[in-house]
């Protein structure tokens, strides 16, 4: 579904990603871990199409299409969803109104009829249960005055409504207490199917207790330096990231 080959990217002339290679098939969950500054969030942003990241080399194909050639909105319409680490506030625009605009633009792109208010509301109701989100939150302005937990829940709720084929969760666990973490993880797990895939970007393995990955990749200095299974995450939890750094330094010598 997603194939990343030799991806290099930089921000304002500073190279952040230095040759990422990654293959993701439908139904898989991949965790991207790594120390601060290793390029995890950059990878997520580059896939979503944020423009201050310049792709300097490599290619990314998504469902057979050149992903890097698509505008951010077209990537979203093709089924790429990014759950933001820091969701922005949009004052005066209700979550409901925002999401309806999004859903209908995506539908238009796919040649589907727009959803009328009634159909959209029943879709909302159905998905609300999934992530245990309060209806009151959705009539409020988007993310305005939301707590950290509410913002993250709202991200997962949007994901549920938009039904993406590839979901990228960028440090969704940051700032969440254990209860909120469980709710968010539960939502993600329920949305999992054999047709869609998930990339979980995280610093800690805590989240992976709840969203169990098929593969774990360790990112360091803009490269995937180690890949493994869930066991790798546990090893990292125990030993920290230093041994990986040493290992990388060792290979370089």
């Amino acid at each position: 579904m997603l194939s990343i080959k030799n991806l290099h990217a930089s921000v304002e002339g500073t190279a952040i990603l230095n040759g990422i290679n990654l293959e993701i098939k439908p139904g898989e969950v991949h965790a991207i871990m790594g120390p601060n500054g290793s390029g995890k969030s950059t990878l997520a942003s580059v896939l979503a199409g944020r423009e201050e990241y310049e792709v300097t080399a490599g290619e990314v194909t998504f469902k057979g299409k050149d992903l890097l050639d698509l505008s951010p909105e077209d990537r979203a319409r093709e089924g790429v969803f990014l759950a933001f680490q820091y969701p922005v506030e949009i004052p005066g625009v209700s979550s409901t109104n925002f999401l309806r605009t999004a859903v209908n633009q995506v539908r238009e792109y796919r040649g589907q009829e727009p959803l009328d208010a009634v159909k959209f509301l029943s879709l909302m109701k159905e998905k609300m249960k999934l992530v245990e989100i309060d209806q009151k939150l959705l009539s409020r302005a988007l993310n305005e005055g939301f707590s950290g937990g509410e913002k993250k829940k709202n991200e997962i709720f949007q994901m549920a409504v938009l039904e993406p084929t590839l979901s990228i969760l960028d440090e969704t666990d940051s700032g969440l207490d254990i209860d909120a973490l469980k709710v968010v993880a539960n939502g993600v797990n329920q949305l999992k199917s054999k047709d869609n895939a998930t990339i979980v970007v995280t610093h800690y393995q805590r989240l992976l207790d709840y969203i169990v990955p098929d593969y774990v990749h360790v990112l360091f200095n803009g490269r995937i330096v180690k890949s493994g299974t869930k066991a790798l995450a546990l090893e990292l939890e125990e030993k920290g990231y230093d041994w990986i750094k040493d290992e990388v330094a060792g290979t370089a010598v």
Partner: peptide, 27 residues
């Protein structure tokens, strides 16, 4: 950031600005 957030949900930039401005002027 606001515009990119909208883009990432499938909303193009013009509609994003319209949405943000109308939200701002709603009162």
């Amino acid at each position: 950031d606001q515009i990119f957030y909208c883009n990432q949900r499938g909303i193009d930039s013009e509609d994003a600005v319209a949405l943000i401005v109308n939200g701002y002027a709603k009162e």
